[in-house]
Nucleic acid binder design. Structure first.
Lengths: 344, 344
DNA sequence: AAAATCTGTGCAAACGTTCCCAAAAACGTC
DNA sequence: GACGTTTTTGGGAACGTTTGCACAGATTTT
């Protein structure tokens, strides 16, 4: 079961040239005469020559591949980010290897180390909600592996980062609830470790402050596992409902859908009486009942920007020392009009 | 920006051995004395030696990587399949490279050829809805690239295949509509090219026949692009509604959600009066309004089975000539009770 | 006309493995 | 102690590239 392809050697032999000449002709180097180039190119075309990327990688000590770590691909936010990453990577002739942490620190570390041993040239990562200790990343980074963080970024790590304007997104979503008359607004959010958690909490608080609504810590519920376990969500809902919230602002894709699910399951009678706004990039949000106002992140662009930054690091001649944190704006998609109990 | 790691050579030099001895010791060959093995292993551990997979690939002429082609990862069915694939692949020390066709033949072909040139050891593929000509796959296959098809499989291609029991799944879904009193049941389905389209149409027809309901071709609508364009779906809905269906059976994930979306957008007043059943692996289906009865495919298992078959082909000593088509059962998840207009 | 420069090409090493083959060391047998 | 066997080790080629260097021949400069 083996794959046979023609190599530079074959071409050289067939044309009576040396491998170096063929190699240089294929890479269009100035030293080779136009005549020879044409000859080589024509023959290569004829035998459908494809350079062996493995040999090239070995020689050049790089793999032209980028590792990606997300919590799960079955999440529209991340799959859109991945699409953005691919759009740039493929253009620049990199391929991508996707790994999922499933919000587990252990899995994340395992995957990163697996990728690193697969000689990726760089890493794009959104931290899992469990992750606190990123020393293993620091290690790899200091050994020369370029890393760019997106979405969930660490505070104390000097490299490029790409995030959404979480503060503003949260502010807008919370304000929207307030403007539609809600006053007891709960906040369901991710693990406290995550950067996004802090930023989104900030936006939520700021909106309350602007409208002179008192911030009540008991209205904020954290989910350590980012909503990967339904029990976690049902618990949060159970603790929240006695406080009679008339609105909930939810801070991530997974949590948003999970929370609505938990609400419908445990307290169907109130599910429609609580206004919900939350971060989600689901393209099915229009189908949801109860409906909700969503904060959409520019996921595709985030992927693109992160990839551009990463590739610039990979291809930099000298170590990069100036780092950027790109902040992209979110978009508030208001829920459709709703008439009585009829959700159209 | 380079990654420095220790190599077999380094170990050999440090220990005063030859590279061959070190290599053999690391691979635990019988020829090497226990003593030397211990020595080498301990030192390798100490310097955190990681074999360079690229060098190994070059030498062994295989990459320990598997290519996957799906139409899109932002689709629960496919992302679950991918999880299944990974669960097996990682165990056997393969890594996977995922590519999306976005239901485009051109993109699919491009991706496959890109993967092939990246020296994958095997390919797992679900055909795009546009694909009719699979000669390019035959080519690769005849050159020795192992291929296993899943979900959307070609008829005339001798290799392993993994599919759901589409006939039975469709039969059950259609029967469920009939048993809940529907008599004018439309069928919205994928491109006619696809294997799944034919099989699912078969199940639909069989259910109608069983209950003595006449099959009307005008109630069947095909979507060439698998619902990737909303215009396509809105057109189908527009053509279907004048026929006054009281039920619709939809034959794929993307189409199911797309159709509900189109219904709500163009004819919100009837959206709740048509019973819907359809293939979908969405984990958000409980949130949908209108609600629907769904046919769930054993996606995770399909991925696992396909990967096992593929790896068996890759690692086969002699060319494989006996092929299997594994058929896995679907599961019908009935829609929840609904009280009047209140969708809980 | 000799020296310097420019063009185009080839030789050979290197990237980090694996593995065939040979050689050295250790052991047993008569 | 000479010989055959077995065990353990090392040398070196190979996988398919890329690239520094050398060199031959043509062209220009002095």
């Amino acid at each position: 079961m083996r794959f046979e392809t023609s190599t530079i050697k074959d071409i050289a032999k067939a044309l009576g040239l040396s491998t170096s000449t063929v190699s240089r002709a294929l890479r269009d180097r100035y030293e080779i005469s136009e005549e020879t180039k044409k000859l080589v190119l024509a023959y290569a075309e004829k035998v459908n020559y494809r350079a062996n990327p493995i040999a090239r990688s070995l020689k050049e000590r790089r793999s032209y591949s980028i590792g990606i770590i997300v919590s799960e691909i079955a999440n529209n936010f991340f799959s859109q980010v991945i699409n953005g990453i691919e759009s740039i990577a493929y253009d620049k002739d990199y391929h991508v290897i996707i790994s999922q942490s499933h919000e587990s620190y252990k899995q994340e570390k395992l995957n990163v180390e697996h990728l690193a041993s697969r000689s990726i040239d760089g890493l794009l990562i959104a931290l899992s909600s469990e992750t606190q200790d990123i020393d293993y990343l620091r290690d790899l980074y200091s050994k020369g592996l370029p890393i760019v963080f997106f979405d969930r970024v660490p505070e104390d790590f000097e490299t490029h980062k790409v995030i959404a304007n979480n503060f503003k997104g949260s502010f807008d979503a919370t304000e929207h609830l307030i403007l539609s008359g809600k006053r007891t607004i709960a906040h369901l959010t991710n693990s406290e470790n995550l950067s996004i958690t802090k930023e989104r909490l900030g936006g939520y608080k700021a909106a309350l402050t602007k409208y002179h609504i008192e911030f009540k810590p008991e209205l904020v519920k954290y989910c350590q596992h980012g909503g990967m376990h339904s029990a976690e969500l049902e618990q949060a809902v159970k603790e929240l409902l006695p406080l009679k919230p008339d609105g909930i602002f939810i801070s991530s894709d997974r949590l948003t859908t999970g929370c609505i699910m938990a609400l419908k399951k445990t307290n169907p009678e109130v599910a429609h009486n609580i206004a919900i706004s939350g971060f989600t990039n689901s393209n099915l949000v229009e189908l949801f009942s109860p409906s909700l106002t969503s904060v959409k992140q520019p996921a595709f662009e985030m992927g693109q920007v992160a990839t551009e930054l990463l590739i610039s690091m990979i291809e930099a001649k000298r170590p990069v020392t100036e780092f950027e944190t790109k902040v992209l704006d979110t978009e508030l998609v208001k829920m459709p009009k709703q008439v009585g109990n009829k959700f159209l």
